[in-house]
Design a protein around this nucleic acid. Structure first.
Lengths: 355, 355
DNA sequence: CTGTTAGCGCCTTCAT
DNA sequence: ATGAAGGCGCTAACAG
């Protein structure tokens, strides 16, 4: 048993070099079972000298688990996704799991590819934080039925054996809009509707409900975004949507006195469009965003927004998943809905509304 | 061979159900070798009905490759990292590889963990885009020596058998600073020095060289940041550093007339600090950032910055890696340095400098 | 404390 | 066009 140059070192190589069997080496590497102290040291030394790396494929194949979790994200350039993954990692790390992230760039096809890759490589479970799609949901269904533990974050999909974590975006949208109404605004615009993103849709519904409940008419002309369902654009470029949408709203004969943007990036784009038009926030137009990204407190003026406990959602999703991995596929689904919190800053601190 | 509920379906299960041997099923699944058309259809149907998913561990173990690439990123909430990963994915996808991303949160320890996880799970190669550290470099060295193909992006580490892609940050910093000097600025601040991030360090060196070469004195008081080397903060929160650094600079008796920020987030923070102080950009203070993130063209005023071909760097790193995987470990190292490009926008469009 | 046996699920090779 | 044998590298279970 001589090591070939180029081929990876195996337990057998080390065993031969140390004059023991592969099993003993395995015990040393995994620190399991009894091994004579002297033998252990010798094996350790040889393994180190030969630059041994264990083969996770063989190990996983034998043990039927890989201590590995997959996370599917739609968009990597996104403070929300980042914060989520931090929460997930926090939990996984302390439980000894490794996290592999797959990006689907908001495409259903790549979503499916990500699921397949992770399932094929036998991760012990998958956390899915991409938005729903017919294709994606179908494959997800298959995965779960095949017994792969799945935990969902903010994805509009239910299955009796998949856990779900969401934020109450409807209520968040409702509160953001109500905040503007209470400040005296009567013509409130919405920037960033899209028919495919369920999360944004919820926020929009909250906006509609608030208007309704306060007896305000819904004016379609105050609602902008890409409503044709064609929104392949990555999340971060919504600054552009905010900018363009706001510019459009400002060109109206009776422009809105305030706007609610579907997320903070959109709001920042709107902020700049307003300032470029020579108007002032919040004096001429009040602005509310959503997500409370780090930038939100550093814009000028600082942005009123709705905060959701993002990291906590990641943590809980990870905990749900680990529990499911331990308890097995039959565990009934857990669901947790998190409250959102309005964060009032300067961008709505208006005391007189121009009508 | 009856399928146990709960256990995954294997080739053997399908073979039994379809009345063939596992080998035939394997040929159908992989579309390799001759299989009778009728048999093929039958096997396909059974596989579909049983919701078969191939076991990538067994497959990889046998074939000695997984068609899988690992990407190690320091910070996920970062347009730069996002753009990089898009470039990488573009190439990998068309070549049939799957990408798994690991995040190290800018910690050397987690960097090493990521390397180990990926190596253990036998990815075919690793792309590393985290900043250098002693620990990380040591382990990287071991990986490469063990024969794992490695491609580096913007990481200050050289090895005869690892490829490297970088942007010329020194030149970029030099040109950004020279731009300000040519506009007439004489007191130019730098925000965001840190002794550990080599990339930022290069930009800073460019700043120093430009000052030197134009006969300007270097004023230490104009240089702010966390110089104690203690910068565990994630990249995106550098808005805070920009804000705080700028505030500090503005409180000086002779404040700078322009600043160069180590990246766009820092610059945005500075922008807002300036405006909160009641001053105007570029009239009172000119601002230059670095990276040309999408936000940069949507700030008010739009931000002058330095663009690097980020996605292209990802593409080239991926191409280097694939070539190395094909050619084997002995392939000599490839290195490509990309030029950066100054993008002039409103934040430096000053025609009169207040001194 | 250490070794032997066997098999995880798949695919390469050779045989039919 | 299909099957049989064997082994990738590792470890559970049992034997000594």
């Amino acid at each position: 048993m001589k090591k070939q140059p180029g081929k990876p070192v195996t337990l057998a190589h080390i065993a031969a070099a140390a004059g023991v069997t592969p099993m003993t080496v395995s015990r040393v590497i995994n620190e399991s079972g009894y091994v004579n102290a002297a033998t252990r040291e010798r094996v350790r030394r040889v393994a180190r000298e030969m630059n041994y790396r264990r083969n996770g494929l063989a190990r996983g194949l034998k043990r039927q688990r890989t201590e590995t979790i997959g996370l599917v994200l739609g968009d990597i350039a996104n403070p929300f996704a980042a914060e989520l993954s931090r929460g997930v990692r926090e939990i996984l790390e302390q439980r000894g799991y490794t996290l592999f992230i797959c990006i689907s760039e908001h495409s259903a096809k790549e979503d499916v590819q990500a699921f397949d890759s992770l399932a094929d490589h036998r991760v012990d479970g998958v956390i899915v934080a991409t938005r729903a799609s017919r294709l994606g949901n179908e494959r997800l269904q298959e995965l779960i039925d095949a017994g792969i533990p799945v935990s969902l974050i903010g994805r509009d999909f239910r299955h009796p054996h998949a856990d779900l974590v969401t934020a109450d975006n409807l209520k968040g949208g409702y509160e953001a809009t109500t905040h503007l109404i209470k400040l005296g605004h009567r013509r409130i615009g919405f920037i960033g509707v899209s028919l495919t993103k369920s999360v944004g849709l919820r926020r929009f519904q909250g906006y509609l409900e608030a208007l309704n409940e306060h007896g305000l008419l819904i004016d379609e002309k105050l609602i902008v975004g890409n409503r044709d369902g064609n929104d392949q654009m990555p999340g971060y470029s919504t600054e552009e949507m905010g900018h363009d949408g706001m510019t459009k709203l400002l060109s109206m004969k009776k422009r809105p006195t305030a706007i609610f943007a579907r997320n903070d990036f959109t709001a920042v784009g709107a902020l700049n469009a307003i300032q470029q038009a020579g108007l002032s926030v919040p004096r001429d137009v009040g602005v509310v965003g959503y997500d409370d990204i780090p930038l939100a407190s550093h814009t000028s003026p600082p942005l009123t927004t709705v905060r959701q406990p993002t990291r906590e959602q990641g943590r809980v999703a990870a905990e749900f998943l680990l529990r499911r991995i331990e308890d097995g596929h039959d565990r009934p689904r857990a669901e947790q809905v998190f409250d959102c919190q309005l964060v009032v800053r300067e961008s709505t601190k208006s005391d007189r509304i121009k009508s």
